[in-house]
Amino acid sequence: MLLDRGMVFMSDTRTNAGLDNISTFCKMSIWEEPGERVITLLSAGNLATTQAAVSLLNERMKAPEERAPSVMAAASMFQVAQIVADTLREVIALHDEAGQRADSAFHATLLLGGQIKGSAQRLFLIYPEGNFIEAAEDTPFFQIGEIKYGRPILVRAFDAGMSFEEAMRLLVVSFDSTIKANLTVGPPMDYQFVEVDACRTATRGRIEEDDPYFQTLSNGWGDALKHALDRLPVFDAQD
């Protein structure tokens, strides 16, 4: 999400290939040259696709070329978004050509955010087809993956003026609501704060399932919902 103070990223770590094959993988990639640029990529979808795309981006940082430029050499975040989108589309097309052609079998969606010195922070949602949209004042946050359970909380409570700490509280509650309703989402959750114009990571970390803060918010949010429901008028069946 885009705040007045900077950017906040959060991702869960659960991947699954069926209910009996659940694993934990980091879905957040960070590239930075402190003071010059910071780039964060979050992924959802087919794990093989997202790992291949990230690996290809890493390889091209080592030996950038005109045909496949590096995100660390791009002149703007828009150019970074184009590079990442082209890479994702390239990986998906390569997998499709290699064999299986089931609908969406190799699809993935990405969130890309960051800042290059001298320009503003920018946030993009990149689709499997390789096209993308950018966050703006009217839409200051993006979600990918399983979004329907946690999104209403963000829509109702988001405020661009909130602090990083307040944004974390909002995100943890949003994730908790999703975790309670969907087995494909689960802790640990990785997070990152990026101060505006700093072009570097301010704070990053991981929240485990047994983290006291996570447990306090999870239990407190459940109790608060029950209390709020009890205060609302009940339905009159005789009307």
Rank of each mutant, 00 (worst) to 15 (best):
A17D: 00
A17T: 11
A17Y: 12
A17Q: 08
G18K: 06
L19R: 14
L19K: 15
D20W: 09
N21P: 02
I22D: 05
S23D: 14
S23H: 14
F25P: 00
F25E: 04
F25G: 08
C26A: 10
K27P: 07
K27I: 05
S29H: 15
S29C: 13
S29T: 11
S29G: 05
I30H: 10
W31M: 08
E33N: 12
E33K: 01
P34C: 02
P34S: 13
G35N: 08
E36S: 10
R37M: 04
R37I: 14
V38Q: 01
V38L: 10
T40S: 13
L41H: 03
L41G: 10
L41A: 02
L42W: 05
S43Q: 08
G45I: 04
N46D: 09
N46V: 11
A48S: 15
A48M: 11
A48V: 01
A48K: 01
Q51A: 06
Q51W: 06
A52W: 00
A52F: 01
A53W: 01
V54F: 05
S55W: 10
L56T: 08
L57S: 04
L57F: 01
L57K: 02
L57D: 00
N58S: 10
E59D: 15
E59A: 15
E59F: 06
M61P: 03
M61L: 05
P64Q: 09
P64D: 09
P64C: 10
P64R: 08
E66I: 02
R67A: 09
R67N: 12
R67K: 13
P69T: 15
S70V: 11
V71C: 07
M72C: 08
A73I: 00
A75I: 05
M77D: 07
F78W: 11
F78I: 13
F78N: 15
F78R: 14
Q79E: 14
Q79H: 06
V80E: 05
Q82D: 03
I83R: 04
I83W: 00
I83P: 08
I83E: 03
A85R: 00
A85I: 07
D86L: 00
D86R: 13
L88M: 06
R89C: 07
R89S: 14
A93M: 14
A93N: 12
A93K: 04
H95M: 13
D96H: 12
D96K: 09
D96V: 04
